[in-house]
Design a protein around this nucleic acid. Sequence first.
DNA 1: CCTTTCATGTAACCTGTTACATGATTGG
DNA 2: CCAATCATGTAACAGGTTACATGAAAGG
Lengths: 181, 181
Amino acid sequence: MTIQYALLGLLSWQPMSGYDLKKLIAESSAMYWSGNNNQIYRALVQLHDAGLVSYQVQQQESLPAKKIYSITEKGEAELRRWVLSTPEVPEIHNTFLVKLAWADLLNDDELDELLDRYETELEMQLRMQEERKLRGMAAPERTPREVLLWKKISENIRGSYENELAWVRGLRAELSGLERT
Amino acid sequence: MTIQYALLGLLSWQPMSGYDLKKLIAESSAMYWSGNNNQIYRALVQLHDAGLVSYQVQQQESLPAKKIYSITEKGEAELRRWVLSTPEVPEIHNTFLVKLAWADLLNDDELDELLDRYETELEMQLRMQEERKLRGMAAPERTPREVLLWKKISENIRGSYENELAWVRGLRAELSGLERT
DNA sequence: CCTTTCATGTAACCTGTTACATGATTGG
DNA sequence: CCAATCATGTAACAGGTTACATGAAAGG
């Protein structure tokens, strides 16, 4: 039910087409969905059925027509209600931890190589994150408070990768201590 | 496809029934699934079809019969292969960040209350995590290295909540700085 | 007496992904 | 010439959840 609210949020900023929404969601890392057609276009139909958005078709010469969606008053009220609803702690799905639980099947070298690959993967992710931030989504920037919120959102994501990276490095250090005994 | 490997891992430790597996998965936070019947029992059938586990039915007086599953040699090889396969970075689904993106709809008091509720939620989660660790799953403890790995796994989970908590507190501090100007 | 534990399993549903289809236009 | 961009949409599937069903036994 929550991608609907992400769409509603984006539309609270500016009216736009499904195609635009799809791209914004695909590029954003806070909005963690893949941004696939099926989900976006279905969600928009549902939002429209619920009267939370409206749209008008805009014809274009030599390009396909597009539906420009806008948030309705009812939609804005619903978005506000949702933002105020009970906050949930993040869901973290870390497959690597499951692997590590059974990593005693490996010898020291294999384990170290595995951890090294994980570290590299995290570093790559961090660099991708940086790039994204540079050429990334234009923030609303309506108030200084909103600017701060958006800055802290990307700090949050960056922070969790850095946290994970520090953890892996700590683990590798502790392991190399063990091996030497 | 990965809950199969979690089950395989647990069975590499000890043969047990679907019911036991279900409980272990439900209690573990590293294995992030809910541990519902449908998923566990179906996965076991699939593992059996693939020849990665075998089972023998154990009759009990005045209790329902149970299927005791064991990992096969093929299963152990497959588990080892999986552990060595390319590690993936954690998937974090943080609905709260999506809410925050549109939290400029709120006034200062409402926003502060929202952040306060999030902070409390995280503190609760941390406390639950502590409890879980105490009465939690018996680790394999086959080697000092395995003991270290399991310790670091729970440190990882604890660490991500602590990280998030620090972030929220930082955000609240910065916001109260803004408000006073 | 009601709930929990043991132990298996199924039905219905929701969310999300990949991959396909159309069809014109622009860029390398 | 092939790929990508624009713009919409659908089909098939994978993964996961809740809730139901059975049926006996133990505990508060």
